[in-house]
């Protein structure tokens, strides 16, 4: 057994509340919790769907509850925040070169936003068909 006792800097659990940059980081990470719950609601919907029409309609009408509406509004906001942070990181992941020159980061970010808008409109049209 080693008798070595290295110094460990103290770290309180509220470190992320004292600096706006860290708070935003934790909000981004925290978005995971709401999105997890949303995925579970969808998984439950698949389960109700498998049980028949009556069960599925009960799931649909449960979604009309005011609490459900407020919850989904929150999920929408935090999901959009996730989208913004994801797109602002995109140039680091994409790293495109055209004729040996790196592509400007703002084109990559703009490209993501344009595809996001197209995908969103496409899905809205698709569900209406």
């Amino acid at each position: 057994m080693s008798k070595r006792k290295p110094y460990q800097r103290e770290m309180n659990n509220d470190w992320w509340l004292k600096n706006a940059f860290y708070s935003k980081y934790m909000i981004r990470e925290g978005s995971s919790i709401l999105i997890t719950v949303y995925s579970l609601i969808l998984a439950w919907g698949v389960f109700r769907l498998s049980q028949g029409e009556e069960a599925f309609n009960a799931w649909l009408s449960a979604l009309q509850h005011p609490i459900s509406i407020i919850f989904h509004l929150l999920v929408l906001l935090i999901a959009l925040y996730h989208t913004i942070t994801w797109f602002s990181l995109a140039p680091k992941a994409v790293d495109l070169y055209i004729k040996g020159k790196p592509l400007d980061a703002k084109f990559i970010v703009a490209g993501h936003y344009i595809s996001f808008i197209i995908v969103t409109i496409f899905c809205l049209v698709l569900i209406m068909l």
């Binding site: 999105i35 999920v75 929408l76 999901a79 994801w86 995908v119 969103t120 899905c123």
Partner: peptide, 9 residues
């Protein structure tokens, strides 16, 4: 999640 979750919600 970035591309589709907002429209799904």
């Amino acid at each position: 999640t970035a591309f589709l979750t907002p429209v799904m919600v």
